[in-house]
Amino acid sequence: MASKANKPELIVNGRRLDGRDFNQLRPIKIEANVLKNATGSAYLEWGNNKVLAAVYGPVEAQPKHMADPSKAIIKCRYSMAPFSSLSEHNRSGPNRRATEISKVTKEVFEKVLMLNEFPGSQINIFIEILQSDGGTRAAGITAASVALASSGLHMKDLVYAVSVGKIGEHLVLDLDMIEDNYSDSDMPMAISPRNGEILLLQMDGEYTKEELEGAFKMAAEAGKEIGAVQRNALKRVYENVVSKYNGE
């Protein structure tokens, strides 16, 4: 996309353009249960990303021939709003990129949700990117995970996602849009914090095996912070209601 010819200096005096350290996340905020009709939902702001995730189900599988008599199936839609990017207006509807992200996101939750409890049914996961600034698939998965927990569906873990990229010789956590456009490598991951297993892994660029190990370590550290934000969002849903009436 971006031409490498006018590549900006992404690291100045050992810091990134927005002032972050190499292993520093952008600020993350999550609010759970924001949509009335959904079984579970979450709104997330991750840097300048703004994401809405919702879960419906289990519902009867549609079309019926898609139903699996042994377990529930997942349908996932990741989509970017036409007004989501700072650059030009986008056509709405899924393109090839969104279709791929929808697929790998679905595969993240196939391992996490206890699908055999609802044979013949379907669980819908919707991720809408309202505003994008790099790392939207990680933001979407992190939000969807909170939406799933708030839906009450049985799941093995509160999954999070984050990306580790490479700028020059440096591993850097959580690339924003400019970094993503001009960096040398990027590797989004979704991780089960309970056991560190990796549920989504994509990568392009160049990593040595040592750098790969370093990236895993960095992602695991970030997971502690992201997980705390996810948990707090869920906690607040119940505490908020409590305080609303203590004041009266």
Partner: peptide
């Protein structure tokens, strides 16, 4: 209020 337990 009791302590909240999360999936996982």
């Amino acid at each position: 209020m009791q302590e909240i337990v999360y999936p996982g």
